[in-house]
């Protein structure tokens, strides 16, 4: 079977799994809304609404984490502005749906919102990328942090999207099956980029930019591509976030969020796709799991443990949990 057919088949299998999952979680309902895009109106006891939303958050964090892995892990560009791209995506998608397509069917809203979010975020990523890529190391990190904060402050000052009050009444229509499907697609796309010509060029730049240049790779070109792809995906993640929460506040997208995504990459292992997924999983589930600890002790230890984990992993296992390894289904062979 050719490679393309295999990919299509894999996609169909995942899509089927997603539909079946939606079918089961919505209490065996067969309306198109329940199967494809609606959040279940009632939960049938298979899963509690709380776990349902944690799972959606997990998927969004995985998308963010793997898209940052493309920049941080594979191309070696240390950026600290992922929250900014996510913010652009979230607000773009919410505005498109809220102002332009308020009466369109959910399905159209979902696709238009996500694509607009990705496209606009990618465009901003292109401009930030082309302007700041002659810097490297910490300086690039600082510039992207600066851009991300400026994006946040501009959003804070736009009254149409709520300003400091936050953007409320955004249509909610993310369901677990479709988010899961998109997450898997994102992971596969990044895996294929990594294993293809572009990905090898990225790795070469990360190892030694000067040598890669000598080999005929145009570092600037590859870096901008990495920037655009990564910000596109972060923007989409922002769109899903907006439509799963139904409410946006600029506070969510402060640099703490960027650091959180970086921490996911680092905990899992910089340069490993599996690590990025694992890190997103751990850092999403850990704070939620620690809520129980908070109930017992009465103090909010979650963020302290979270920060401590970050420091301890850096000191005791600097290469991250996965190191450079990949899970079998994500390895390049």
């Amino acid at each position: 079977m050719s490679k393309l057919n295999k990919t299509v088949l894999l996609f169909l299998i995942f899509a089927a799994v997603a539909v079946v999952l939606n079918f089961v979680l919505s209490g065996f309902s067969v309306t198109p809304g329940a199967l494809f895009y609606e959040k279940p109106g009632r939960f049938t006891g298979l899963i509690s609404p709380y776990y349902y939303s944690v799972m959606i958050l997990l998927c969004i964090n995985v998308i963010l984490s793997v898209s940052l892995a493309l920049l941080n892990g594979f191309t070696g560009l240390f950026t600290m502005g992922h929250a900014g791209f996510m913010a652009i995506g979230a607000y773009t998608s919410a505005s498109v749906v809220y102002f332009l397509l308020p009466t369109a069917p959910f399905f159209i809203q979902l696709i238009a919102g996500a694509l607009a979010a990705g496209a606009f975020s990618g465009l901003v990523g292109f401009f930030i990328g082309t302007s700041s890529l002659r810097l490297n190391g910490d300086y690039l990190g600082m510039v992207t942090l600066g851009f991300s904060e400026i994006i946040r402050i501009i959003l804070l000052n736009i009254d149409a999207v709520g300003g400091a009050r936050g953007f409320s009444d955004i249509p909610v229509y993310m369901n677990l099956g479709s988010v899961l499907l998109i997450t898997v697609i994102t992971i596969m796309v990044i895996k294929r980029i990594r294993d293809g010509r572009l990905g090898r060029a990225m790795l070469a730049i990360k190892e030694n930019e000067m040598a890669a240049n000598m080999m005929g790779i145009n570092p600037l070109n590859i870096k901008v591509k990495a920037f655009v792809i990564s910000s596109f995906m972060a923007g989409m993640a922002g769109s899903f976030f907006a439509h799963s929460e139904g409410y946006l506040s600029t506070q969510t997208f402060s640099f703490a969020k960027s650091f959180e995504v970086i921490a996911m990459n680092v905990v899992g292992g910089l340069g490993s796709l599996s690590g990025a997924i694992m890190g997103a999983g751990i850092l999403t589930v850990l704070p939620e799991a620690l809520r129980k600890v908070q109930d017992i002790t009465g103090v909010d230890l979650r963020m302290v443990i979270y920060a401590l984990t970050m420091v301890l992993i850096m000191i005791l296992r600097p290469q991250g949990l996965m190191g450079n390894k990949e899970w079998k289904w994500l390895s390049s062979k």
Binding site: F259, I262, A263, A307, L308, M310, V311
Partner: peptide, 9 residues
């Protein structure tokens, strides 16, 4: 990253 972690801590 350690510095960021210490800051959060």
């Amino acid at each position: 990253i350690t510095a960021i972690g210490v800051s959060l801590l």
